[in-house]
Amino acid sequence: MLHIQNLHASIDGKGILKGINLNVKPGEVHAIMGPNGSGKSTLASVIAGKDEFEVTKGEMLFENEDIQELDPEERAHKGIFLSFQYPVEIPGVSVTNFIKTAINETRKSKGLGDMPANEMLKMIKEKAEMLEIDRKFLSRSLNEGFSGGEKKRNEIFQLAMLEPKLAILDETDSGLDIDALRIVASGVNKLKSKDNAVIVITHYQRLLDYIVPDFVHVLHDGKIVKSGDKNLAKELEAKGYDWIKDEATV
C-alpha cells in the first residue's frame, strides 16, 4: 500500500529525514517510535504532503502510484489520512459542517454527488456514538476551545467518517487521559480491517497496549535504526532510547 524508499526530506535546507525505508501492507499496523526530534512528525507530514518540507531524494508510492507531486487534498482523496498532533482551531465552522465539506469534496473528486443528508446524519450519529461523542459537541466550532482530549477524539471522529485506506496517527495519545485513550484506541481498532492500514506515531508504549502493532520501528536522527515486533516497544519502554542511539552510532 505504502512504499517508501531512501526518503530524504529537509526544511529550510536542513535535513530531517535521512533515508527512510518503510513498507506498509493492507491490514497491517505499524508503530513508529523514537525520541523527540528524531523526525517522527516530519515523516507523517511528508506522507500527507505538507509543502513546507522538501523531499530531496527517494521514492514514495501509494498503491503503486508516485504521490510526491500530489497536493495534500489529492492524497486525502486517494485515502491517506493524518490525525494531527496539534489540530488547528477553526472558529465559526462547526464540526458537522466541516466533516460534511470534507466528505463531499472527497466524493466530488471521485465524480460522485453530495452524500444525501439523511445518510450523512445517520453516519455522523453512528460514529459519534462509537467514540462516545456528545451531540452538542458536533455543533461546536471546530477545535475551538476544545480540551486536548476533545481535539484528539475529534480527529478520530474525522478518521471514522472519512474511512481512509491509510491512517497516520501522529502522537494521538499525547494529552489524553486513560479513559479517553481507551475510547480513541477502541475506535481505531473498530475501524481496522484487512483492507486498510494504520501507522501509529508515538513516543510512549502506552497507546500500543490498546492498538497492538504488527511492526515497531525506531526512528533516530532521520533514519529507521531498528525494526521489530510489539516486544520492541516494551523493550524501549523499559530501557529508554539511549541504547538504540548507542547501537546506531556504533
Binding site: 513546507e52 465559526g92 472519512l162
Partner: peptide, 28 residues
C-alpha cells in the same frame, strides 16, 4: 499555512480551504 494544510489534508481543495478560513476569520 498550518490551517491550510489541516483542511487540505482532510480532502478540502486549496480554493475551498482558503474560502473556509476566510469565512472563519470574519465569522466571529
Amino acid at each position: 499555512e498550518s490551517a491550510m494544510f489541516y483542511l487540505q489534508s482532510r480532502g478540502i481543495p486549496k480554493k475551498e480551504a482558503r474560502a473556509l478560513l476566510m469565512y472563519a476569520f470574519s465569522n466571529d
